[in-house]
């Protein structure tokens, strides 16, 4: 089976914690190689301790097993380090519709305190940070001063 077909199959795997976007859109899926019917899929964690990695690895194996591919190696790489810049524009839009403020450019992580985050509910930029750390390693907790709704932001990374 050719690589692009494999990629389509694997790309269907949603992120376990944010199911509206898949692992390709999130930038976790890095590479697929095939040599003599031996498939090597390379993934990278968003955070070193991302608890979803073993789940994603199993899903990749399951998906390929269903199309008859058994000789699969799933490799984890730390380099180049994952960045929110790899999240596609389409995925950012989906995040917003899901109620999570998408990340801006990764360099904005350098001045967390001054960045302006837009509320995904009402669109106001009059928001404040409640906590840098949220329900998962990749999100912060914020509140909108206008519509008063709390929301999460995908941290710039």
């Amino acid at each position: 089976m050719n690589i692009s077909k494999i990629e389509t199959i694997i790309s269907e795997i949603p992120d376990p914690e944010i199911p509206v976007i898949n692992i390709k859109e999130l930038g976790i899926l890095r590479n697929i190689e095939c040599k003599d019917n031996h498939y090597t899929v390379t993934i990278t964690p968003t955070y070193t301790a991302c608890p979803a990695m073993s789940f994603i690895e199993n899903e990749i194996r399951n998906k390929l097993l269903r199309v008859g591919i058994t000789d699969v190696e799933v490799k984890t790489t730390y380099t180049p380090a994952w960045t929110t810049d790899w999240i596609s524009e389409r995925a950012k839009q989906k995040l917003k519709e899901y109620g999570i403020a998408p990340p801006m450019h990764s360099s904005c992580a350098m001045n967390f305190t001054t960045q302006k985050v837009t509320c995904p509910h009402c669109g106001s930029s009059d928001t404040k940070t409640i906590s840098r750390f949220g329900s998962t390693a990749c999100k912060s907790l914020l509140k909108c001063n206008i519509c008063k709704e709390p929301f999460e932001q995908f941290k710039c990374h």
Partner: peptide, 20 residues
């Protein structure tokens, strides 16, 4: 609560780093 999330998130980062 927020501090609970923060400290355990930091803890998680560290345990991931230890694993690496």
């Amino acid at each position: 609560l927020e501090e609970d999330l923060a400290l355990t998130n930091i803890s998680l980062d560290m345990i991931g780093r230890a694993q690496a």
